[in-house]
Write a protein that binds this DNA or RNA. Structure first.
Lengths: 162, 162
DNA sequence: TGAACGTGCATGATGTGTCAACTATTCCGT
DNA sequence: ACGGAATAGTTGACACATCATGCACGTTCA
């Protein structure tokens, strides 16, 4: 085994910086969201997905797909959210194996109350700090990295269907 | 309450892209690390910190500080790692409240075995995909964001002492 | 000396994510 | 129509993070 190609200074700055930002920003935003609205990041994601759907009646699998979550994670999480009264699960008539998920009025109220402050937090901690060029640069980077990852894994097992 | 400033297209691309990248990349790297070496991200971080220290004998609080972890999280994690034989905790003679953490030979072997493949994974999934300009841009962004966050929280409660 | 307070760390309860079965249903080839 | 494979979703065991709390020790000051 040959000597590994350790990161040079520029690479290390980017990588460590990214890691640090990732951790700090996620912490700040999720603490803020939880304090403001009592929702976790995961709750927020689920509620956004449900509220974006026109019928507000979504199949569990569809939800799993758009959130990119594992089915079991979603199932557990839906159970917890259902217990809190944020949503309902009901059987699907056309496919008896399946289930629909729908927002309750409480769930709708929760996401509508939480969204403005959350967007504002994302802005103030992140988006508004960056120039248009930096936003584009970040968008490009993300596209590259995600594209590479999905291309690599697409040969893997399945085309993932999402 | 005035209408929130929702994200425009460029901003949304950057934010969604970042979120997506963050999730995908973390997943890919940690799955890879776990498969290659049986270590979690957290394990890896702890071992790196321990192995970087010259004496390889570190106070728990110091470790918590450089990892930016809560003390109790670290305490639990150290207990698990100690049970797996990766490290040892021993009392500190000069301060009877305190504890030292030290790598075992197994722990040292684990980090030395894991590091090259991990760096290679970071390269192939991330660093090597980016141009020098992109690396610098990302470094700048991270510096901005982290700087803003730490400036904001420094007025908060404590100077954090780290 | 000793009471009050701060520090370093451990512990227990709780919420959340992952993995590996598992159930129920549907699809499909014969 | 039947039997096996695929699909939708759930469940339980477990690993982990976080929070609140507890405990042992040290420091300060009356």
């Amino acid at each position: 085994m040959t000597e590994p190609r350790w990161l040079d200074e520029r690479e290390a700055r980017a990588w460590r910086g990214y890691q640090h930002m990732r951790w700090q920003l996620a912490g700040a935003l999720s603490r803020r969201l939880a304090a403001d609205s009592g929702l976790s990041d995961s709750d927020y994601g689920v509620l956004v997905c449900l509220s974006e759907d026109p019928g507000e009646n979504v199949r569990v699998g569809e939800l799993a797909c758009s959130l990119q979550w594992e089915k079991s994670r979603l199932s557990h999480h839906l159970a917890r959210m259902e217990k809190r009264g944020l949503l309902l699960r009901q059987g699907c008539p056309s496919d008896a194996r399946g289930a629909f998920v729908a927002l309750t009025p409480e769930g709708r109220a929760a996401i509508e109350a939480a969204a403005p402050a959350h967007v504002e937090a994302v802005r103030s901690h992140f988006i508004d700090l960056l120039s248009p060029e930096q936003l584009d640069c970040l968008g490009d980077i993300a596209e590259l990295v995600v594209g590479h990852l999905s291309r690599e894994s697409s040969g893997d097992v399945a085309e993932s269907g999402c």
